[in-house]
Amino acid sequence: MAIDRIWSYAPGSAHTEGQDLTGFSVAATDGTIGHVDREDAPHGMRHLVVDTGVWVFGRSVLVPAGVVTGVDTEARKITLACSRADAKAAPRFETDSETRDPRYLTAVGDYYHRLPPRETTSV
């Protein structure tokens, strides 16, 4: 995955422009990680903020749009091209202001870009 593509939904993901993903469940390659709290695209860096609930001690994780491999609107489910451990190990998301900080977003994009390709399951 090219670094510039990390912030855009992949053509085969079934994401449609203007689609509201809030509340969709989010599954990594090895299980569910939470649900979409919100979507944002400051500085052209489109991403999801995923509420992990109790799985990661109630914290949220930020996932670039390019990590999304599938969007199933009927099941309200999103699949990712990373494992649960990958999402948990991503740069820590502390405050809402970070979702607009280009330095933080760049660090998150670099992290996901360097992950090895994962076998994805269907949505």
Results as ranks from 00 to 15, higher is better:
residue 82 C to T: 04
residue 78 I to C: 02
residue 92 R to P: 11
residue 79 T to I: 08
residue 99 T to P: 00
residue 94 E to H: 09
residue 99 T to H: 01
residue 113 H to F: 14
residue 77 K to I: 08
residue 93 F to P: 05
residue 58 G to M: 11
residue 115 L to R: 01
residue 63 V to L: 13
residue 92 R to C: 07
residue 64 P to I: 00
residue 113 H to N: 13
residue 84 R to I: 15
residue 75 A to P: 14
residue 101 D to S: 05
residue 111 Y to P: 07
residue 74 E to R: 10
residue 69 T to F: 04
residue 73 T to K: 12
residue 94 E to Q: 13
residue 110 D to M: 09
residue 100 R to W: 07
residue 86 D to L: 10
residue 73 T to F: 06
residue 81 A to Y: 06
residue 111 Y to G: 09
residue 83 S to H: 03
residue 85 A to S: 13
residue 116 P to E: 14
residue 112 Y to R: 01
residue 72 D to Q: 07
residue 84 R to W: 10
residue 102 P to G: 02
residue 74 E to S: 05
residue 111 Y to D: 03
residue 57 F to I: 07
residue 101 D to W: 09
residue 91 P to V: 06
residue 110 D to P: 01
residue 106 T to D: 13
residue 104 Y to L: 00
residue 93 F to K: 02
residue 78 I to Y: 03
residue 64 P to S: 00
residue 73 T to P: 14
residue 114 R to Q: 14
residue 81 A to M: 12
residue 101 D to Y: 07
residue 87 A to N: 00
residue 63 V to P: 04
residue 116 P to D: 12
residue 109 G to C: 02
residue 105 L to N: 03
residue 85 A to G: 09
residue 94 E to I: 09
residue 66 G to M: 04
residue 86 D to N: 12
residue 69 T to L: 06
residue 67 V to T: 07
residue 71 V to D: 09
residue 115 L to Y: 01
residue 90 A to C: 13
residue 100 R to I: 08
residue 85 A to D: 15
residue 68 V to G: 03
residue 86 D to T: 09
residue 116 P to R: 12
residue 84 R to M: 13
residue 86 D to C: 12
residue 80 L to N: 02
residue 68 V to Q: 01
residue 91 P to R: 02
residue 102 P to V: 15
residue 78 I to S: 02
residue 97 S to Q: 11
residue 94 E to P: 06
residue 98 E to I: 05
residue 73 T to V: 12
residue 102 P to Y: 05
residue 106 T to I: 11
residue 78 I to V: 15
residue 99 T to Y: 02
residue 57 F to S: 15
residue 79 T to H: 08
residue 105 L to R: 02
residue 114 R to I: 08
residue 77 K to Q: 12
residue 116 P to C: 03
residue 107 A to F: 03
residue 57 F to V: 13
residue 66 G to R: 05
residue 60 S to V: 01
residue 95 T to N: 14
residue 91 P to I: 01
residue 90 A to G: 07
residue 86 D to S: 10
residue 106 T to S: 09
residue 99 T to V: 14
residue 114 R to S: 13
residue 60 S to C: 10
residue 73 T to C: 07
residue 106 T to Y: 09
residue 114 R to E: 13
residue 102 P to W: 01
residue 73 T to Q: 13
residue 79 T to V: 11
residue 74 E to V: 13
residue 107 A to Q: 13
residue 89 A to I: 03
residue 110 D to E: 14
residue 98 E to Q: 15
residue 109 G to N: 04
residue 94 E to A: 12
residue 90 A to Y: 05
